[in-house]
Design a protein around this nucleic acid. Structure first.
Lengths: 182, 182
DNA sequence: CGAGGCATGTAACGAGTTACATGATTGC
DNA sequence: GCAATCATGTAACTCGTTACATGCCTCG
């Protein structure tokens, strides 16, 4: 099982551990927190839920309430609780560096005339800026969710600061590229 | 065309723009820079190269030199040069926030006893530390590749600083989790 | 003569997304 | 009567990776 899947199963298990829920409910809660970096589309989620039922981590019971469509409400089993704890331990103690794809263009930016290069870098900077403004600042850290938010905030700050370093070094014309350096 | 593919085509185009090369050569150069965050496996690369030949961005000529196996040496066409410039402009001026998956576990860390939670976070911290030490510091920024390296360095610093914030807030027991907060 | 490098791939698999299918109910 | 919401999926497609195929050459 790969890292992406583990994290996603952990997310579902962790939510169901707090409260039994059906798929639609889980999906809505996750979607309302995309800003924090959680992405999980419906078909993927349903597939994971069914896989975890297969594995005996979850049980599912169909519930009919009022005029709503029939719901499949999932609950953690004892095995699911054990799996949750294992995934949590593995995940909390692990780190793999971010693989950021946006920087290939930096390698070749000298192919552009200096003024255009500068303009494009400033445009990138504006995007980071606007993303930063879109995040409402945290008054204090009071729950784990805040820590995740803080993570985003800190990395956006870093991105901006780094971009300023890039812009500075470009404007001082300190940068030259030869093939030998790649 | 999605972001990942664009970046990878840009990387290949940019390298071929500096010098005609065959696949094996490209692959070796890219592999020797995985540390900088460039990952591109052989089959993927060959597929992209062939796709770009199809698109008329590259031409390929077979070369036989000495006793080496026959090589397919790729060169940029005029269309390839135009494509390179377009991808470069798009890519340099764009930014999409990093999607980091390692933080789901943070949401649920209260499920663990405090001492174990602390131990696991410290283990994560050690991994970041060791990654940081594995990067040799930059004496100065003299080429675009240094900027990419600097990007990694800065984000590792940020990761470490954030982890210290996490550890601090955990040890002060400021963090509590209810479902309503998710 | 066998292991490993050079060189270019193919095939099978896995994981995720988009678009679509289904079907009942509620609001305009 | 038509769109939107609730609810659970399936099917087709894309993208990438791993493992394997091929064949020649070099080195020990």
């Amino acid at each position: 099982m790969e890292g992406q899947i583990v994290e996603r199963k952990l997310l579902l298990l962790g939510m169901l551990r707090m409260q039994d829920m059906h798929g639609y409910q889980l999906n809505e809660m996750i979607d309302s927190h995309i800003q924090a970096g959680f992405a999980l589309k419906k078909p993927t989620m349903y597939k994971l839920l069914n896989a975890m039922v297969e594995d005996g981590w979850l049980t599912c019971a169909t519930h009919k309430e009022g005029n709503y469509p029939t719901r499949r409400v999932y609950s953690l089993t004892a095995a699911g609780e054990l799996a949750f704890m294992k995934l949590l331990r593995d995940s909390l103690s692990a780190y793999s560096p971010i693989e950021y794809q946006g920087n290939v263009s930096l390698l070749f930016m000298n192919a552009l005339p200096e003024d255009e290069r500068m303009a494009l870098l400033h445009r990138r900077r504006e995007i980071v800026k606007s993303l930063q403004h879109a995040m409402h600042p945290l008054p204090a850290i009071s729950n784990p969710h805040d820590l995740v938010q803080l993570h985003q905030i800190r990395h956006l700050e870093t991105e901006l600061a780094w971009l300023d370093e890039v812009i500075a070094s470009v404007s001082e014309e300190r940068i030259h590229l030869e093939l030998s350096q790649f």
